[in-house]
Computed example of a mutant assay.
Amino acid sequence: MKSLEKATADYERAKEKMEASKARYEADLKRFKAAEVAKTEAENLEIVRIIRAMDMSISELEAFKKRMKTELPGRVEIQKEEIEPDDEFRENETEEEV
């Protein structure tokens, strides 16, 4: 009987630890998501501040954006190249996991 009681007690302790760990994980995840939202909001506010500092009308801003795309095509390609290796790496990870 003692081994059953011990096993039951061990089971209950493990269950309590697991539930506490799950609660900590959920709290950490909630904090992480809130920090992620705050970071994105701060980045967006910084972008808006920079754009407003340019003191352009919307039509001038659109023209500037179009001009940047046509006059700096190499820069756009460089940005795309920087993104592609990460995507390829992630594809390899998923293939290996399967």
Rank of each mutant, 00 (worst) to 15 (best):
F89I: 01
A14F: 05
A63E: 03
T8W: 14
E19T: 02
R49G: 02
A34F: 06
N44W: 13
R90Q: 15
Q79W: 05
E5P: 00
E62C: 07
S59Q: 14
K66V: 11
S59K: 13
A9C: 08
E60Q: 09
S21I: 04
N44V: 12
M56G: 02
A63F: 00
E91R: 00
M18K: 09
E96A: 07
L72E: 05
Y25H: 14
A7W: 09
K69F: 09
V37N: 06
D10A: 02
E88A: 07
T70K: 14
R31C: 00
L45C: 08
L4N: 05
P73F: 09
I58H: 04
E81C: 10
R24D: 09
T40S: 04
I51H: 04
V37S: 08
E84F: 02
D10N: 06
F89D: 01
E95S: 05
K17R: 04
M68Q: 01
E5T: 02
M1F: 14
M68V: 04
A42K: 09
V76F: 12
V98S: 10
K6F: 13
M54A: 11
T8N: 15
I47M: 13
Q79G: 03
M1S: 15
M54H: 07
M68N: 07
S57D: 06
L61A: 12
E97D: 11
D87Q: 12
A34D: 03
A42S: 14
E84D: 03
L29G: 03
K30I: 07
E91M: 03
G74F: 14
R52Q: 15
L4P: 00
N92Y: 07
Y25Q: 14
T8G: 11
A63H: 03
A9R: 10
R24H: 09
N44H: 15
E96P: 00
T94S: 03
E60K: 06
L29I: 02
A9H: 12
E19V: 02
I58Y: 07
Y25N: 13
Y11E: 07
T8I: 15
S21K: 10
R75Q: 13
K39C: 13
T70Y: 10
A53R: 03
T70W: 08
E62H: 08
M56D: 01
K2Q: 12
R67P: 00
V76N: 10
L61K: 07
R75Y: 15
F32Y: 15
E5G: 03
E71T: 14
T40D: 07
E16P: 00
G74N: 15
Y11P: 05
A63P: 01
K22D: 01
E93W: 01
Y11G: 06
V37D: 09
E41G: 00
E46P: 00
E77N: 12
S57L: 06
E62Y: 09
K17Y: 03
E12R: 04
